[in-house]
């Protein structure tokens, strides 16, 4: 893969990461390393903890997620992240935009083949 393509892929992943995090938290509240593991299990996203934690902090500052410490049955307490009502609305809007963009791009790419 050329450097340009790698850079493009990185930009694309950066653009959808927020949507991916909101989507995961819409399923269930998650603690930080759980979120990192869920994202790391999808190698196409190429996400590391150093990307996820600052992003979650920005989402919390923006009021899209909240965090709460909860007791853990297997160790020290963990900080869980949960979607707020504003976060759920943002997720819906972003998912709609993402689908529309993906559909349009897919059509163009398929036509060009």
């Amino acid at each position: 893969m050329s450097i340009e393509q790698e850079g493009w892929g990185s930009q694309l992943r950066k653009g959808v990461l927020e949507l991916a995090v909101l989507g995961l938290l819409a399923r269930e509240p998650m603690y930080g390393s759980q979120l990192v593991d869920e994202l790391a299990a999808r190698p196409e996203l190429a996400i590391t903890a150093g990307t996820v934690y600052p992003l979650v902090a920005r989402l919390a500052k923006g009021g899209l997620v909240t965090s709460t410490w909860q007791e853990s049955p297997v160790g020290p307490p963990r900080k869980y992240y949960e979607l707020t009502a504003a976060g759920a609305r943002a997720l819906t809007a972003m998912a709609t935009t993402f689908s529309a963009v993906a559909t349009a791009v897919r059509e163009i790419v398929e036509e060009s083949r």
């Binding site: 920005r58 923006g62 009021g63 899209l64 504003a86 943002a90």
Partner: peptide, 14 residues
């Protein structure tokens, strides 16, 4: 306005 502010905060930070 709260939705706008929340979205703006995220954009600024990104």
């Amino acid at each position: 306005p709260a939705d706008v502010t929340a979205l703006a905060a995220t954009v600024g930070e990104v």
